[in-house]
Amino acid sequence: MAAGGDHGSPDSYRSPLASRYASPEMCFVFSDRYKFRTWRQLWLWLAEAEQTLGLPITDEQIQEMKSNLENIDFKMAAEEEKRLRHDVMAHVHTFGHCCPKAAGIIHLGATSCYVGDNTDLIILRNALDLLLPKLARVISRLADFAKERASLPTLGFTHFQPAQLTTVGKRCCLWIQDLCMDLQNLKRVRDDLRFRGVKGTTGTQASFLQLFEGDDHKVEQLDKMVTEKAGFKRAFIITGQTYTRKVDIEVLSVLASLGASVHKICTDIRLLANLKEMEEPFEKQQIGSSAMPYKRNPMRSERCCSLARHLMTLVMDPLQTASVQWFERTLDDSANRRICLAEAFLTADTILNTLQNISEGLVVYPKVIERRIRQELPFMATENIIMAMVKAGGSRQDCHEKIRVLSQQAASVVKQEGGDNDLIERIQVDAYFSPIHSQLDHLLDPSSFTGRASQQVQRFLEEEVYPLLKPYESVMKVKAELCL
């Protein structure tokens, strides 16, 4: 049975990233139509530049190519590739079939990587351009969430054990800070992308030097003109047959890092959902379990974690691919890159769409948070109580021993009897502590235990987050809708 299948058929496997999760716009960027249309555009740009620099290419040939950029006979191309065992030459023939007058000058002087690699770089750039505003929107939604809850005390956790208090907004800023680093890295790697350009079979530009009869300047002009037509500021000066596969490492490393950030955020949300302090959106008709109707599973956060793990592992592909590119190139890269580049971007696209949807509907339960604080705060307040007693004339050592005994009794009630923490009640009825009984409410005010959390939130948002989001103001209103 021949390899390949009808990918629109229910009898043929289709990647869930495309069929179930990723956005239509990201799927289109990695589609065959987008790819092969870009090949034709690159052939047109090459012909236009070659004509401008004096090669015998007519206006009629150029116009014929322009008129057929979208006229792609995919069936013919597939048949040609089956016959020739070469995808680029299959599309040269297919393009030439609908451009008979231009057929002889299509791909003039070029090698397969002229269309293959340059198209990949265009796709990487455009895919990054799709991700950047999506990530900015996630940051914006979380920034709104953090600002609104900047002063809401909550129990902090280290080692997932109760620690000092923080605020809900401050905790959210930990998430935002990681995503801001990801946004900066995505922008950097996007701006650092260079075009492969017009380089020939081993990167020496020998074929173009021959076409222009040894004119170095025209060869350099050709490279520059096509690079500018493709919208790049610069091209690699040095290439082998391909652009260095280190570029793929750079791009997928940034995406993998984004995956790590999203995994951490969504894990926190899942843990908070278990504590009943916070939940992701839950639709009115949504079913959490087929057997347990009360369940409210954090399905979206779980999906993000599941896909983020996949995204983090994909960076190993370009690392290994770059390491086995012998001399000017081997074909070890080809099949692998067809999979890992598309999957990385479709996965990143999915987790950003999902995280935006989550961040637009996060639900906080202040009463649950308050109750958990009441359970733990008495123990945390013991040092403040000791200091207040010393100020009232008591002995630190005597007070410490009193607190120690009462704390152990209260802990026994919590752990052995399943009761509430009654340390404060014990202190309130103990005559030894009568000098500070009137101060206990103040000493137990949760806001006095959150330090500068709310001020940190305000400063972080104003100095770091809002300036970073400013270039994306025009796209901030787009909502994230999930079908599944």
Score class of each variant (00 low, 15 high):
residue 2 A to Q: 15
residue 2 A to P: 10
residue 9 S to Y: 15
residue 10 P to R: 14
residue 16 P to L: 12
residue 16 P to I: 14
residue 19 S to V: 04
residue 22 A to M: 13
residue 23 S to C: 14
residue 23 S to N: 12
residue 24 P to H: 08
residue 31 S to A: 08
residue 31 S to C: 07
residue 36 F to N: 06
residue 37 R to V: 09
residue 37 R to F: 11
residue 41 Q to H: 14
residue 44 L to F: 05
residue 45 W to P: 01
residue 50 E to F: 05
residue 50 E to A: 07
residue 50 E to R: 01
residue 51 Q to P: 01
residue 52 T to E: 15
residue 54 G to D: 12
residue 55 L to H: 09
residue 56 P to Y: 14
residue 58 T to L: 12
residue 61 Q to I: 07
residue 62 I to S: 03
residue 64 E to D: 13
residue 66 K to W: 11
residue 67 S to C: 12
residue 68 N to V: 08
residue 69 L to M: 11
residue 69 L to Q: 08
residue 69 L to G: 06
residue 70 E to K: 13
residue 72 I to P: 07
residue 73 D to G: 07
residue 73 D to Q: 08
residue 75 K to E: 13
residue 77 A to Q: 15
residue 78 A to G: 12
residue 79 E to H: 11
residue 79 E to M: 09
residue 81 E to W: 00
residue 81 E to N: 01
residue 83 R to Q: 11
residue 87 D to K: 00
residue 88 V to F: 02
residue 88 V to N: 04
residue 88 V to D: 00
residue 90 A to K: 07
residue 91 H to W: 05
residue 95 F to L: 07
residue 102 A to W: 01
residue 102 A to N: 05
residue 103 A to E: 08
residue 103 A to N: 11
residue 106 I to V: 11
residue 107 H to M: 01
residue 107 H to G: 00
residue 108 L to C: 14
residue 110 A to P: 08
residue 111 T to C: 04
residue 115 V to S: 06
residue 116 G to R: 01
residue 118 N to D: 02
residue 120 D to H: 08
residue 121 L to Y: 01
residue 121 L to D: 02
residue 122 I to V: 07
residue 124 L to T: 14
residue 131 L to G: 05
residue 134 K to H: 13
residue 134 K to M: 05
residue 135 L to T: 12
residue 135 L to F: 14
residue 135 L to C: 08
residue 135 L to P: 02
residue 136 A to R: 13
residue 141 R to Y: 14
residue 144 D to F: 15
residue 145 F to I: 00
residue 152 L to R: 06
residue 159 H to T: 00
residue 163 A to P: 01
residue 164 Q to N: 08
residue 165 L to A: 02
residue 171 R to L: 01
residue 172 C to I: 07
residue 172 C to E: 01
residue 176 I to D: 02
residue 180 C to K: 06
residue 182 D to N: 00
residue 182 D to F: 02
residue 184 Q to C: 12
residue 185 N to M: 09
residue 191 D to Q: 07
residue 191 D to I: 09
residue 192 D to T: 14
residue 194 R to W: 09
residue 195 F to N: 00
residue 196 R to D: 00
residue 197 G to E: 04
residue 197 G to I: 00
residue 197 G to N: 03
residue 198 V to A: 11
residue 201 T to R: 02
residue 202 T to D: 06
residue 203 G to W: 03
residue 204 T to K: 00
residue 204 T to R: 00
residue 207 S to C: 07
residue 208 F to D: 01
residue 209 L to Y: 11
residue 211 L to F: 08
residue 214 G to A: 06
residue 215 D to C: 15
residue 215 D to L: 08
residue 218 K to Y: 11
residue 220 E to Y: 13
residue 221 Q to K: 12
residue 222 L to V: 12
residue 222 L to W: 02
residue 224 K to Q: 09
residue 234 R to S: 14
residue 235 A to P: 14
residue 236 F to W: 12
residue 243 Y to F: 14
residue 249 I to S: 06
residue 249 I to Q: 07
residue 250 E to W: 05
residue 253 S to E: 07
residue 253 S to L: 10
residue 254 V to C: 10
residue 254 V to L: 10
residue 256 A to I: 06
residue 257 S to V: 06
residue 258 L to P: 04
residue 259 G to D: 06
residue 261 S to W: 03
residue 262 V to T: 13
residue 267 T to I: 13
residue 269 I to N: 00
residue 270 R to N: 02
residue 273 A to R: 00
residue 275 L to Y: 10
residue 278 M to P: 02
residue 280 E to P: 00
residue 280 E to V: 01
residue 281 P to V: 08
residue 282 F to R: 08
residue 290 S to C: 02
residue 291 A to G: 03
residue 294 Y to H: 01
residue 295 K to S: 04
residue 295 K to L: 01
residue 297 N to F: 00
residue 298 P to R: 02
residue 299 M to S: 13
residue 299 M to R: 04
residue 300 R to L: 14
residue 302 E to S: 00
residue 308 A to H: 07
residue 309 R to D: 04
residue 309 R to S: 06
residue 309 R to H: 12
residue 310 H to C: 07
residue 310 H to Q: 09
residue 318 P to T: 07
residue 319 L to C: 00
residue 319 L to I: 13
residue 319 L to R: 03
residue 321 T to S: 09
residue 323 S to G: 10
residue 327 F to A: 13
residue 327 F to R: 01
residue 328 E to R: 03
residue 328 E to P: 01
residue 334 S to W: 05
residue 336 N to K: 05
residue 336 N to F: 02
residue 338 R to G: 04
residue 339 I to S: 12
residue 339 I to N: 10
residue 339 I to M: 10
residue 343 E to Q: 10
residue 345 F to G: 06
residue 346 L to Q: 09
residue 350 T to E: 15
residue 351 I to D: 03
residue 354 T to F: 06
residue 357 N to D: 11
residue 360 E to R: 01
residue 360 E to I: 05
residue 362 L to C: 08
residue 364 V to R: 03
residue 365 Y to I: 04
residue 366 P to I: 14
residue 367 K to G: 10
residue 367 K to Q: 13
residue 369 I to K: 00
residue 373 I to C: 06
residue 375 Q to I: 09
residue 375 Q to Y: 07
residue 377 L to R: 01
residue 378 P to W: 02
residue 381 A to P: 09
residue 382 T to N: 06
residue 384 N to E: 03
residue 387 M to F: 08
residue 388 A to E: 06
residue 391 K to M: 09
residue 393 G to L: 06
residue 396 R to G: 05
residue 396 R to T: 04
residue 402 K to H: 07
residue 402 K to A: 08
residue 403 I to F: 15
residue 403 I to P: 04
residue 404 R to F: 06
residue 404 R to G: 06
residue 405 V to M: 15
residue 406 L to D: 05
residue 406 L to R: 06
residue 408 Q to W: 06
residue 409 Q to G: 10
residue 409 Q to N: 09
residue 411 A to I: 09
residue 412 S to N: 15
residue 413 V to G: 11
residue 413 V to M: 12
residue 413 V to N: 11
residue 414 V to D: 05
residue 417 E to L: 12
residue 418 G to I: 05
residue 419 G to S: 10
residue 420 D to A: 04
residue 421 N to K: 04
residue 421 N to I: 08
residue 423 L to I: 05
residue 428 Q to R: 11
residue 430 D to R: 03
residue 434 S to C: 06
residue 435 P to W: 03
residue 438 S to G: 08
residue 439 Q to P: 05
residue 443 L to E: 03
residue 453 A to V: 06
residue 454 S to I: 09
residue 458 Q to K: 14
residue 459 R to S: 12
residue 460 F to S: 02
residue 461 L to Y: 03
residue 465 V to G: 03
residue 466 Y to D: 13
residue 471 P to C: 14
residue 472 Y to G: 09
residue 477 K to R: 14
residue 479 K to A: 15
residue 481 E to C: 13
